[in-house]
């Protein structure tokens, strides 16, 4: 048993104050902090809620889930043809649910990544939030972040991109679009270990 005093939950500390993974330079940190302060001051709950309607996030808050949903909308295929699109598959909510099985450290990293995604324009003297940009501008923003961005921006883009695409294409409604005929064995319902953690959000 440890005699050390209890520490505050990692997620409760300022997300930019921890780990090299999220370390930014002093100027960048100040710019992001200013952006975050302005964002908090500016509210916008309804705006974010509209990006992922009727969602009940488990780990993320409404703003974070909205930003993540906006990101998924640009990264995953648009609905059309055989593609259901990320909103129908509820990719952002799948990611949120997955986070509930991970450590406070990993959850805090993802939250901080979403914060940087939304307010990272401040690092380039472009204060408009990601979710306030139009579609083509969002694509350009993501391209700059993933290709030309500094290490931290590339990490954020790369890791969120991975989550979005993985949780889109694990859904069997997407398999027709890529001509994947799926597993050979049926999915047992409920799965032997845990229905809640993997539970389909549409059923």
């Amino acid at each position: 048993m440890s005699s050390a005093p209890p520490r505050p939950p990692v997620a409760a500390r300022h997300p930019l104050a921890r780990r090299r993974f999220l370390a930014v330079g002093a100027i960048g940190g100040a710019a992001l902090a200013a952006g975050g302060w302005l964002a908090a001051r500016g509210g916008g709950e309804a705006h974010y809620a509209s990006l992922c309607p009727a969602a009940r996030p488990v780990v993320l808050d409404v703003k974070e889930l909205g930003v993540l949903a906006a990101f998924c909308a640009r990264v995953c295929p648009e609905p059309g043809g055989a593609h259901p699109g990320p909103a129908a598959v509820r990719v952002a909510e799948r990611i949120d649910r997955e986070l509930s099985f991970h450590t406070a450290k990993l959850r805090a990293d993802v939250k901080a990544a979403i914060f940087l995604l939304e307010h990272g324009g401040w690092l380039h003297a472009a204060p408009t939030r990601f979710t306030r940009l139009g579609g083509p501008e969002q694509d350009a923003y993501l391209r700059r972040m993933g290709v030309e961005g500094r290490e931290l921006e590339r990490q954020v883009f790369s890791n969120l991109r991975l989550l979005a695409l993985f949780f889109y294409y694990v859904d069997d409604r997407t398999w027709g679009a890529i001509r994947y005929n799926g597993p050979y064995v049926p999915r047992v319902a409920p799965p032997a270990d845990s229905r809640p953690r993997e539970g389909r959000l549409d059923g």
């Binding site: 993985f166 694990v170 049926p186 032997a192």
Partner: peptide
């Protein structure tokens, strides 16, 4: 035999 290995990547 418990049908745990359902071949789905997420599960």
């Amino acid at each position: 035999r418990r049908r745990d290995f359902d071949q789905r990547e997420d599960d």
